[in-house]
């Protein structure tokens, strides 16, 4: 399956799935197409998502709507300082009648886990979730249990209200494929939102449009999307540019390269394409890279953020020019 590029029927299926889910999400969040598309790309690339923005712009709504639109099991964890790791992973309880311990799975045993305000939990609890994200399995009482597939974590955090929080360290932020700043809606979109919320919870209107099986299949199709050597070199060039940039104290990691490519493949498949374009890479570079890099002190003093620096990097890197001989190419 992964050895050949997806057929047009497969790609049409992915595009259709993305279109349906996008429509559902739009009913609750108006005017956030870019965030929605990046979210979908991350989901289809089986990546974890970090929604980061000020309170009230719809982070949790987006996460929950996504869980509803896809007919999969959804676990929701509200992170608080007193949340314990076992509250996330689950716990073994003793069943006196059967004289044995029985594992009670925590909320992490779901296809989509919505982790609200992840930075409010203690580092120990954060680590438990992040380990599950990385390993796609949970080890409790010495026993390793696989998490369901697909497995996606959608975490939200509030970057402003920092009191009493435990900000995620860089190494752990790196585990999220993308960070999406939801952003404020435009005036018209906000009016539309008021209309939608008038009198009832729009989340109720979100109906499941895709099954877990369809999502799994879409994810495997996405993996098979073709990335030309020129595209891979473009990704590497962008990565190198972030590492060489004097504005950045920390550049993007090799894992970022892999995840950027995966996300770009997903975006290509969503457009019904069997190959990645540099445009896919460009569109996802900020969501995939900005939360992993650290702006230097001078750049911060100049009012520049990781987002703007990444955009500058994209404006400076040459898009690879020539077609290179590819193994599956026409030679």
């Amino acid at each position: 399956m992964t050895s050949t590029v997806p057929t047009s029927e497969e790609l049409a299926a992915v595009a259709e799935l993305a279109r349906l889910v996008r429509e559902q999400l739009r009913t609750v969040l108006s005017g956030l197409d870019e965030a929605i598309d990046a979210t979908l790309a991350t989901v289809l690339a089986e990546g974890h998502l970090l929604l980061e923005d000020v309170p009230g712009v719809g982070k949790t709504t987006l996460a929950r709507a996504l869980g509803r639109a896809i007919d999969v099991s959804v676990g929701r964890i509200q992170f608080t300082p007193d949340l314990l790791p076992s509250d996330v992973t689950g716990v073994s309880v003793f069943r006196g009648d059967e004289h044995r311990f029985e594992f009670r799975p925590g909320p992490v045993f779901a296809n989509i886990v919505v982790a609200d305000e992840i930075n409010r939990a203690s580092p120990k609890t954060q680590a438990a979730l992040l380990e599950a994200m990385q390993e796609r399995s949970v080890t409790v009482d010495g026993e390793t249990r696989a998490l369901p597939a697909p497995f996606l974590v959608i975490a939200t955090q509030n970057p402003v209200d920092m009191e009493g929080t435990y900000p995620l360290p860089e190494a752990q932020r790196d585990r999220f494929m993308a960070r999406i700043a939801v952003g404020y809606p435009s005036g018209d979109d906000e009016v539309a939102m008021l209309d939608a919320h008038d009198g009832h919870d729009p989340l109720v209107d979100v109906v499941p449009v895709a099954t877990a099986a369809a999502l799994t299949r879409a994810i495997s199709i996405v993996r098979a999307v073709y990335a030309a050597p020129a595209v891979k070199r473009y990704i590497v060039d962008v990565m190198r540019a972030t590492r060489d940039s004097s504005d950045l104290r920390l550049g993007a990691s090799p894992r970022a390269s892999l995840q950027l490519l995966s996300a770009a493949k997903a975006r290509a498949a969503m457009a019904g394409r069997d190959h990645v374009l540099p445009d896919d890479v460009k569109a996802l570079a900020v969501p995939v890279l900005a939360h992993r890099v650290i702006a230097g002190a001078q750049a911060r003093a100049a009012g520049r953020t990781a987002d703007t620096i990444i955009r500058d990097v994209l404006d400076a890197v040459t898009v690879p020019f020539s077609r290179e001989p590819a193994p599956a190419g026409r030679g």
Partner: peptide, 10 residues
């Protein structure tokens, strides 16, 4: 040109 550069079969 996109196909030529980036598509598997040019």
């Amino acid at each position: 040109v996109e196909d030529h550069r980036y598509a598997p079969h040019g």
